[in-house]
Design a binder for these strands. Structure first.
Lengths: 186, 186
DNA sequence: AGCGTCATGTAATGTGTTACATGATTCG
DNA sequence: CGAATCATGTAACACATTACATGACGCT
């Protein structure tokens, strides 16, 4: 039991970010509020407790920088157990529920999988993602066809947007798979 | 104070759905697990407490159907106060946070706004949605440009997907605005 | 008799949100 | 000197997830 499970999307994001380089709670706070990782909630009340949990679970360790100066900062980095935990999480198969309800997390997993585990794992994530979409699209199309054309078609438009989005995502995934596959490998 | 605030996306979905027609907890459960509204979580442990909250807030009222038979069902419908609450919620401006973190909810609001309040309110929702994207895209593009081309470009791909998705969404919104505007109005 | 579905809930647990608290530093 | 930013947290509250509990109906 050297590697605890990752419970929330926020914890996954934190693990990956402190794997990239040591970061403080405040660093993470800024990333979650200003960068493209906005989707990951993030407020002091979420980030600091998450850091505490991960620390208690042995996944990260904090080291105080600038101890001599008057403004110390606690920079966290991954422990060996933390690396194992993160890798195990990244290797997990992508579920339909991940696709429908935690898409942001899937893209994080793709990116971290690529950086930590290499091209093949990143490609696997994308392939599973695209396959779920392929299977889910006909279901959505059937639902669209089943909507009666009564009042304003508002529901139809909304559903159509969902279908278009999934189609674009699957195309993106396959394009990236292609490019990654071609990278110095013939 | 005849209209309470809508606290969670789930509550908004429930209000809109029981406005369309009276529905039981089990009906909602099926919708959230099988239809395109999968994104709205949904399990008995979420739906029934939500119904209870809305009922206590005076937004919905339950009526028992088939009281004589051995399998009664509690069908909920909107009260006058519930209609007010829902309308107020639908008229709320769309924030950037709504766009980034609660997109699904925005599309629900669009659809219900169209059905309950008419074309103009639906168009307003879409316009605000598209405007936020217009303002946000340059920020994302700047972030993409700032990513160093070091190791595997995985982060770049993920970010690019986000940008493409927002672009497609804005295009969808404008297309729908166009079509709605043309509907028997010259 | 047993399984799947209809149908409604509760309890424990964990996590995020909002708001607050504290104090140093930098810039104008 | 005051405001913004750096920096780290805590507390109350609400909400979702998971798992459990209950019981009738319909079919084989």
């Amino acid at each position: 039991m050297s590697s605890k499970p990752v419970n929330s999307p926020l914890e996954l994001a934190v693990l990956g970010l402190v794997w990239q380089k040591p970061r403080s709670g405040y660093d993470l706070l800024k990333i979650f509020s200003e960068s493209a990782l906005r989707g990951f909630s993030s407020s002091a009340g979420a980030v600091y407790p998450a850091l505490k949990r991960l620390k208690r679970g042995g996944c990260i360790a904090g080291k105080i920088e600038n101890r001599d100066t008057l403004r110390p900062r606690r920079a966290y980095s991954l422990t060996a157990a933390g690396v194992e935990t993160l890798k195990r999480c990244l290797r997990q198969p992508v579920t339909l529920d991940d696709v429908v309800r935690r898409a942001e997390e899937v893209f994080l997993r793709f990116a971290f999988a690529g950086e930590m585990l290499g091209r093949n794992e990143a490609i696997r994530v994308l392939r599973e993602y695209a396959r779920h979409i392929d299977a889910y699209l006909p279901v959505l199309r059937a639902q669209l066809a089943a909507i009666p054309r009564t009042s304003g078609d508002y529901g139809r438009y909304a559903l159509q947007r969902g279908i278009d989005g999934y189609k674009a995502d699957a195309r993106w995934a396959r394009r990236v798979i292609d490019r990654l596959s071609r990278q110095r490998s013939g």
